[in-house]
């Protein structure tokens, strides 16, 4: 286990940012800290890096107790949401910073910088200033800068949060490929469950300062530990006293499956290839159903049509009033 976090508490005034967090993050993996904004995930990352200190608890990195170590002695690479580029230095100088601080020979620094800039596809920008780069390029530069010191762990704080959707998607794929190449233990913070599911080997779900669940993306999606995790990883709707995903609701114009609830379509909304139907059941439930445009056309769905809804076979369901913890 690369990073061991034990009994970490952190308060900002009266606000409890972290509440007895215990988690171990495995070596060589790409782990996502996932949760809503203000849930404490960034604070945890900053405590791992030594940029904030925990009120109580210990952090050990690769077997070394790092709790009392200042950031510069932890050998971690940190990538900030807003890049934190050194504005007065060229791209090459930015990347070289950590190596120059470590007083490495000039030739070695030049070689390493060259190699890293090639890795992040910024070789032709080596002598530009960061202000001449786009957001995505700046963040790649920041990544190269963090990787230059060969950190034991690479920490990324909402690394793609300040970028537009398209660049974000590109960088996300690129980060995954980069990790497969370099294999450095990586932890990144995100509030975007799609980003976490797509990129991470393992996800730690954090909410209100507590770890809700740790697992692979599939485990989290298929076996959520509680209704918060289920709700955070994807949309949910309630039908016949159980929670399930809207695309797992079977909808038909005749009562085909036993136990189906009868209702009326109150609203239809089309978003691209998807149709979202709101069904008011006779029992008073408001059920959201997601189906493809083609499927909705085949059924001839329209507002006011009588339908029968039930959980599709094989659907993940969870009793709606459970607090599974």
């Amino acid at each position: 286990m690369s990073i061991e976090i034990k009994g970490v508490n952190k308060k900002f005034g009266d606000f409890v940012a972290l509440d007895d967090v215990n988690v171990s993050l495995p070596t060589g993996q790409l782990t996502a800290l996932l949760g809503p904004s203000g849930g404490g995930k960034s604070t945890l990352l900053r405590i791992i890096a030594g940029l904030d200190s925990a009120d109580t608890g210990t952090i050990s990195i690769e077997g070394t107790n790092a709790t009392e170590l200042p950031p510069q002695k932890r050998n971690v690479g940190f990538v900030f949401q807003h890049y934190a580029v050194f504005k007065h230095m060229t791209v090459a100088k930015n990347v070289a910073f950590g190596l120059e601080i470590r007083k490495r020979p000039k030739a070695e620094v030049a070689e390493k910088v060259d190699e890293l800039l090639r890795l992040v596809h910024l070789s032709q920008f080596a002598h530009r200033l960061p202000s001449q780069l786009s957001g995505g390029q700046r963040q790649r530069m920041a990544l190269a800068r963090a990787l230059a010191v060969e950190p034991t762990v690479l920490l990324l704080d909402e690394p793609f949060g300040a970028l537009d959707a398209k660049v974000r998607k590109e960088l996300r794929d690129w980060l995954r490929r980069l990790h497969d190449e370099v294999h450095v233990t990586t932890v990144f913070v995100t509030h975007d469950q799609e980003e976490a599911m797509e990129v991470a080997d393992e996800i730690v779900v954090i909410n209100e300062g507590r770890v809700e669940q740790v697992g692979t993306p599939d485990q989290l999606y298929d076996e959520p530990a509680n209704d918060f995790v289920m709700g955070f990883l994807g949309e949910i709707t309630t039908l016949n006293g159980v929670m399930l995903r809207p695309h797992d609701v079977h909808i038909s114009l005749t009562p085909q499956l036993p136990g189906a609830a009868e209702g009326t379509i109150s609203r239809l909304l089309r978003v691209g290839f998807e149709v979202r139907a709101t069904v008011l059941t006779d029992d008073g439930d408001e059920v959201t159903v997601v189906l493809t445009r083609t499927h909705a056309r085949q059924l001839g769905l329209e507002t006011g049509v009588r339908v029968w809804v039930t959980a599709a076979s094989g659907a993940l369901t969870m009793p709606s009033l459970s607090v599974a913890r």
């Binding site: 940029l51 971690v76 807003h82 934190a84 580029v85 050194f86 504005k87 910073f97 010191v149």
Partner: peptide, 11 residues
């Protein structure tokens, strides 16, 4: 930000 980045890089 820049100061924190420098600290994390070993300065």
């Amino acid at each position: 930000d820049q100061e924190q980045a420098a600290r994390s890089l070993g300065a």
